[in-house]
Amino acid sequence: MPDPRPLLPLLADARRDLTADCSRCNGLCCVLPAFAASADFAIDKPAGTPCPNLQPDSRCGIHDRLRDRGFPGCTVFDCFGAGQRVTQDVFGGADWRTDAATRAATAAVFPVMRQLTELLWYLTEATALLPAGPLHTEVTAARTRTEQLTGTGADELAALDAAAYRSEVGELLGRVSDAVRADVPGRARDRRGADLMGAALRGADLHGASLRGAYLIGADLRGADLRHADLLGADLRAADLRGADLTGALFLTQPQLTAALGDGGTTLPEWLTRPAHWSTSRSAAPPSRGRRPRRR
């Protein structure tokens, strides 16, 4: 099994262009998506309409108070750098506010670019996880192709079948996951796509399992063993990760963590950051019943 520690500097450098830079974007995530009044958003907002909190400089006027003001949904969104690529690279800095054509084209391009940059996030991790060999070569080629697609023009991006391309890359990432997790001793059974909403999984042994696309909304995962589990696309909204061990978790993203609950006892992959709203204290250890001893 790969040692996760050497991946930190490699991933940090390779993902530098996959980090949102709001200073180079025209507030696209505050304009293009629709908001529905809910626990995630305090208001209804139609697609293509600027959020009332968006300022003339394209910054959010309540960015440091989003959760307090009823917009936790905004805190879990990450464009993986798609915003600045669309604004600067595709449209040369043109502002949707003053150019109607740019506004319409941006609405078509941004969702596609957002999917491509997220795929680049996963493919970058996959290349770091794999040893040299045919699968690594295939992943490297897919990463290069995806990067090339992000550099095409607005018409080409709008015409791309993003869903089909995502499915193609997803199949490849599935093979990467299988290859990496094959070396995890005594790994738990896979629960890919499982409906585990609100499930009582406190202290559960899920190490090395595929939880890809699983619905873990509101699940009690306190103290769970999620080491080297595949969490690509798993819905962790309001999942309780206090005291859980996510060391080496595969394809986990910052938005997934931000949508969940955690504390100072939650162990994260070194390349991810503990969300600011998580408690810094450590919760009590869960019962050990049914949980295997941790292998080092």
Rank of each mutant, 00 (worst) to 15 (best):
H136T: 09
H277A: 11
T102V: 15
I217P: 06
L206A: 12
V76P: 00
G203T: 06
A214R: 03
L11T: 03
P287L: 08
R291N: 10
R292D: 07
Y215K: 11
D21H: 11
G61Y: 06
M1T: 12
D3Y: 14
V86F: 14
R187Y: 13
Q148V: 12
V31G: 02
A276W: 12
G233A: 09
I62S: 10
Q115N: 10
L261C: 01
Q55K: 15
R59H: 14
D263S: 06
R143D: 04
T127I: 09
A234H: 10
D240K: 06
H136P: 06
A36T: 09
P286D: 10
T137D: 13
G223T: 07
A47H: 03
V109W: 00
V180I: 12
R85Y: 00
G186V: 14
P50E: 10
S288H: 12
A163Q: 08
D89R: 14
E147D: 15
A12Q: 05
L149H: 07
A101H: 07
A182W: 00
G193I: 12
R114K: 15
L250T: 04
A141K: 03
R114V: 05
A276K: 10
A34G: 13
L28V: 05
A285E: 15
P72Q: 08
D263L: 09
L123I: 13
L252A: 10
R202C: 13
R103T: 08
R15L: 01
R85F: 02
R296W: 13
T267M: 03
T253V: 02
D263R: 07
L66N: 03
Q84D: 04
L236S: 07
D99R: 08
E156C: 02
